[in-house]
Design a protein around this nucleic acid. Structure first.
Lengths: 198, 198
DNA sequence: CCTTCAGGTTAACGACCGCTAACCTCCCTG
DNA sequence: CAGGGAGGTTAGCGGTCGTTAACCTGAAGG
């Protein structure tokens, strides 16, 4: 896997700034002129790169869901033969990395889903569902006594815990990225353990 | 404290429906005509009860924050002399009740704060901060080894966990309200315990 | 019985916003 | 060196939305 050193394309710039603005003020609260201004072009110039404002949101949300799912599948494959316990740790680590590195996207992920066209929304929901089911399976391997509905609820709740990073104050009031990641990881494991204890 | 048996006033009807609609489609995504239609009057009739759309959101958010803080203070006072451990349980219970009974409000609470006028936003932030600090104090009594920044992060993360109820599927797929509340409670305690273990 | 007022109504205004149209200007390529 | 496409620009249209204005009505009170 080659690490990218190339400059980001215009499309990527736009998506990044759009994600930030959507997360800050909501999809309807941001105008196309603002998005354009954020990348140094103005207003309708965006339409050379995207079919419309909706298309930007759709690409963002589909991208997020896909990225999460792909990463989880990769970690699952890499740890093949390892203990379910280690796989769960790896899933948690991946989700935390994402939550800490792409906070605007995490915010969008569960906030603006309803603004999508039907087909896009179905796609995103399907990717999200696969991601959740993957966690549920691993979780029930680690805690075999856990019933499936409870496991699903537990997974959603831990997502809520891990996705709380946007509320943790601007980076700087945090005890440092490493310490925060470690704290979140411990808490997630603690929450799962408590859910698994019958 | 007299329990209310009177019919809800028009104002209260409006606030309730507005909360639901704002939570479903976002503040900017809902028109005043829709809010009016939801209570059986149409459009500008709302202005007999509120100064504007912003005023509804402000009253909702200030109300939520105040209600949470007031409830927490009451529980703290009632359990006076009791163990910090019991107080923490009581705080968790109160927050879960709120998250399960007023899911639209919980959603609004951390989604639309930025749409408020400066003065209202400051008020809400102040109420929220007091609520968090109250939890932080109790938490550090239960886990004396926990440093303050870590405790604050832990509290925010557990709020994320407890506030995940809107993602748990429509009531019906849940294992029942009591079981869900109990599961959330156990997970919150587990997460705190893991944060407190050095 | 007349007045008043709370709580509605519809019409309409002004601002904003997403998007299109029309045009311009490089840069690459045959 | 022609020319064409990629990627901008500004002007402006059409629709939506929050808000106000002007008017109506039914019930309470002196």
């Amino acid at each position: 896997m080659a690490t990218r050193t190339d400059a980001p394309t215009r499309r990527e710039q736009i998506l990044k700034e759009a994600a930030r603005l959507f997360a800050e003020r909501g999809f309807h609260g941001v105008g196309v002129d603002e998005i354009g201004a954020a990348v140094g072009i103005s207003g309708p110039g965006l339409y050379r790169h995207f079919a419309g404002k909706d298309a930007m949101l759709a690409e963002l949300l589909v991208g997020i869901s896909g990225q999460l799912l792909t990463g989880a599948k990769r970690r699952l494959a890499e740890a093949d033969g390892g203990s379910a316990d280690a796989v769960l740790d790896s899933l948690i680590e991946g989700h935390i990395d994402f939550a800490l590195d792409d906070r605007p996207l995490i915010t969008l992920h569960d906030r603006e889903l309803d603004r999508l066209r039907d087909s896009d929304r179905k796609l995103v929901r399907q990717l999200q569902r696969q991601y959740v089911e993957l966690w549920v399976e691993i979780l029930r391997e680690v805690y075999p006594g856990l019933a499936e509905p409870a496991a699903r609820s537990a997974v959603h709740s831990v997502f809520g815990l891990l996705n709380s990073t946007p509320h943790l104050g601007r980076p700087g009031s945090l005890p440092g990225r490493g310490a925060t990641a470690e704290l979140l990881h411990r808490m997630a494991r603690g929450a799962f353990a408590a859910a698994g204890a019958e």
